[in-house]
């Protein structure tokens, strides 16, 4: 026990010196509404729906994001265009429930749903925080300017079979040639 006496006395007195020193340091607080912090590029906050490089919607209404969402804040109605291209008739995210976890963006196969650094979503009316497709859809490609789902894997819908980059011609099943 006597071994620790000096350590204990030092441990009791040291905080007094540390706090006294801190008293004369500049606080690290960012005075929020006046000063804004530079957020990291990959900060996860408000969700958006992006477009592909050709300007079309990326979302194919596969429901994977709403399935991945832990708080069930994403809902949509899937529908199909005349050419067989799927899209969402309506798409709704309830930001009063969203916890900014970003799991929907992990789940999205078409990179349609993406996160932005805009976290300032406060308001008095909760219904104003229910964002419809019009509010969510943006006019850019988000964090990937080249990716176009239908050019990679869209089969027979937006591009004819075998016309996509890195895709081989379709095989003629009645031919014996390899």
């Amino acid at each position: 026990m006597s071994r620790h006496v000096f350590r204990d006395i030092r441990g009791t007195l040291q905080p007094f010196w540390v706090t006294l020193r801190n008293l004369f340091r500049k606080p690290v607080t960012v005075q929020y509404p006046e000063q804004k912090q530079q957020l990291p590029e990959r900060y996860r906050a408000r969700l958006i729906l992006t477009r592909d490089p050709d300007g079309g919607e990326r979302c194919v209404a596969c429901h994977l994001c709403s399935a991945a969402c832990p708080v069930d804040c994403i809902s949509m109605q899937a529908t199909e265009a005349a050419d067989g291209r799927r899209y969402a008739a309506w798409f709704r995210i309830n930001f009063t429930r969203c916890i900014f976890c970003g799991l929907c963006t992990e789940a999205c196969p078409t990179k349609a749903i993406q996160v932005t650094a805009d976290f300032e979503l406060a308001g008095r009316d909760p219904l104003k925080l229910v964002y419809e497709k019009v509010d969510l859809l943006v006019d850019h490609c988000g964090n990937d300017n080249s990716y176009n789902f239908y050019h990679q894997t869209g089969i027979g819908v937006t591009a004819p079979r075998g016309e996509n980059p890195q895709e081989t011609k379709p095989m003629d099943v009645k031919d014996l040639m390899p």
């Binding site: 706090t19 006294l20 801190n22 008293l23 340091r25 500049k26 606080p27 690290v28 607080t29 005075q31």
Partner: peptide
């Protein structure tokens, strides 16, 4: 105020 400054807050 003092507690704040001692903890590097305002």
């Amino acid at each position: 105020k003092i507690l704040g400054r001692m903890q590097l807050r305002y």
